[in-house]
Structures are given as C-alpha cells and as structure tokens.
C-alpha cells in the first residue's frame, strides 16, 4: 500500500469534468489499495509523508508545481511530472532544441535572441518561412502566447511583448491543420489518442483555461488507442523518448501524410469523458506507474 499525494490548486476543480477526472484518480488508487490525498499549496510541508507525488496543478519552472516536483525528487519520491520534464516541456526553446538534436520531425523553427532581433533578421525569417509566421513565447501554455504575424510591424509588436519576460523566443513556419492529434503517453507506452479539432475559421485548437470561463474550444474526438495510426503513435513515442519516461501529451499535426510534432506537454489535461472516453483504464495505469 502506498500513500499518494496529488498536488492541485483550486482551479483544478473549477471545471466539473476535470474535477470528476481527479475523483476518478482517487477511486482508481483506492481500488488498488492505496491512499490518495489532494495536496494544496499550504500543505507542502507534508510531502515527505508520501511515497509518490502526482502533480495536476499547472506546471512551469516558475510555478509552485516545480518546487513540489523537485522537492519530491530530492527526497527520493516517485513524481509525475518529474522536474526534468517540467524544465524541458515548460520551455519551447529547450523542447525544439532537443527535437532538432535527435531528429524528431517537428515544425520548422528558429530561435530569436533579443539582441539579434532586427530588420534584417525579420526579412530573412519571412524569406525562409513565408508569411505569416507563428511567434511563440518559450513559456506559453494553453495557446496564450502563440501568435501569427504577417508584417514587420506586428512582428515587432508581438516580439516586444514576449521579450518582456524571456530574452529569447521561437518563430515557426505557419502550418494550419483541421485538427491536432493528441497522443497521451506514459512510460513509453501510448495511453490514449484523441483529435483536438480546430474551430472553424481559427487555427489554434483553443484552450481549456483552468478556472477561467473557457473561450472557444474545439471538439475532442477520442479514439481507441488500438485504432490510431501506427506511425502517429511511433512518432509520439519517439518525441517523448528524448524527454523522459513520465506522462506526456504529444501534439502532432498531419501534413501531407507526414506526422509533424507541434509539442510535447508534460502535465497533459485529463478531463472525464474526454481523454478517458475510450481509454478508461488510463487512471489505473497512471496510479500503477506512480507506485511502482
């Protein structure tokens, strides 16, 4: 029997489907004979009491979740998301650098440093990628800091905003698709597969912003993992392989029959009746992973 702490913040319970998923984790843990407690910010001192920590609060090297993860790690507990995965997935520059280093097919990307941002560079980028291009702040999540720019003026305006927090940013070729594949991966195995549809007339799948009234969010179509294309699953596993062996959500675009990785997320959203729809065993599998 193990004691599992699930680190959450209040917003994790704001959406009833997410709240239900959290409850499902608790039920799955108890079914396997484990204790499962929700751990909030004010109980961090209790971390050493547990055998494993499962983080569901939003992760970022700047957030409390990283402190929870690294503390658990230093104390020798099993932890999902582990600190290295948070560090890598929390920063697009880190992530795409690893993709290029290990030949993971990904959207053509360049990095731009604050000091190297000038007229010549902008023109060069437009020449290589065409227009528009997608500018991303390295720390973006929930699509918040991902913008499309087609001229130098808007490029400068967006870059100026993103450079406030980060001294570097990423620029990508614009590759719109009707949906993003989302492959859930745990410990080098596919856990679930869905399609996050892009709402008509838009190019981002939108975002469930925890605790905020959600803006337009494309439909989620869930597949049985057995029925998803093999090459898709292989691409997802390969991408996760350069990061770690924890729990990930891989976003993949299908362009002219090729699978191109958009990003690997640590801390992927798991909402009841969405990601779990045809893969109900995902709760039990994650718990098993946490205690083994």
């Amino acid at each position: 029997m193990a004691n599992i702490a699930c680190f959450v913040e209040k917003y994790n319970f704001a959406d009833s489907n997410e709240a239900m998923a959290l409850q499902n984790f608790k039920i799955a843990a108890e079914k396997q004979g484990h204790e499962f407690d929700f751990l909030f910010r004010k109980n961090l001192r209790e971390i050493p009491k547990y055998d494993a920590v499962f983080i569901r609060a939003t992760t970022d090297p700047l957030y409390t979740a990283y402190i929870v993860s690294k503390t658990a790690w230093e104390l020798g507990l099993k932890v999902v998301d582990d600190p290295k995965s948070i560090q890598i997935c929390g920063n697009k520059i880190h992530l795409y650098s690893l993709f290029s280093k290990y030949d993971i097919p990904h959207i053509p990307t360049i990095f731009l440093n604050k000091d190297a941002f000038n007229h010549k560079r902008i023109l060069e980028i437009f020449k290589v990628f065409g227009r528009p291009v997608v500018v991303k702040a390295p720390y973006t999540s929930f699509s918040r800091y991902v913008e499309k720019v087609a001229c130098e003026t808007s490029f400068r305006e967006v870059a100026k905003r993103f450079f406030r927090k980060s001294d570097a940013l990423t620029v990508q070729k614009f590759m719109p698709t009707a949906f993003d594949w989302r492959v859930g991966v745990l410990n080098d195995e596919v856990l679930y597969v869905c399609k996050y549809m892009v709402p008509k007339g838009r190019w981002k799948h939108g975002a469930k912003r925890r605790g905020k009234p959600s803006f337009i969010w494309g439909r989620t179509i869930t597949l049985k993992r057995e029925n998803a294309p093999t090459e898709l699953k292989e691409t997802a596993l390969k991408a996760c392989g350069v990061i770690g062996h924890g729990l990930y959500g891989v976003d993949i675009k299908e362009v002219d029959g090729n699978y191109v990785v958009v990003e690997v997320n640590d801390n992927p959203s798991i909402y009841a009746r969405y990601e779990d729809l045809r893969n109900e065993d995902l709760y039990g599998k994650i718990i098993e992973y946490l205690v083994n």
Partner: peptide, 15 residues
Amino acid sequence: RYLKTGYYVSLHAEI
C-alpha cells in the same frame, strides 16, 4: 535567472 540570456547560454551549451 530562468528565461534570461544567462539561462539560455547554459541551456545552449548543454544541448
């Protein structure tokens, strides 16, 4: 600090 050039230099070397 994280996200500052000092961080990216170390990251780049590691990559």
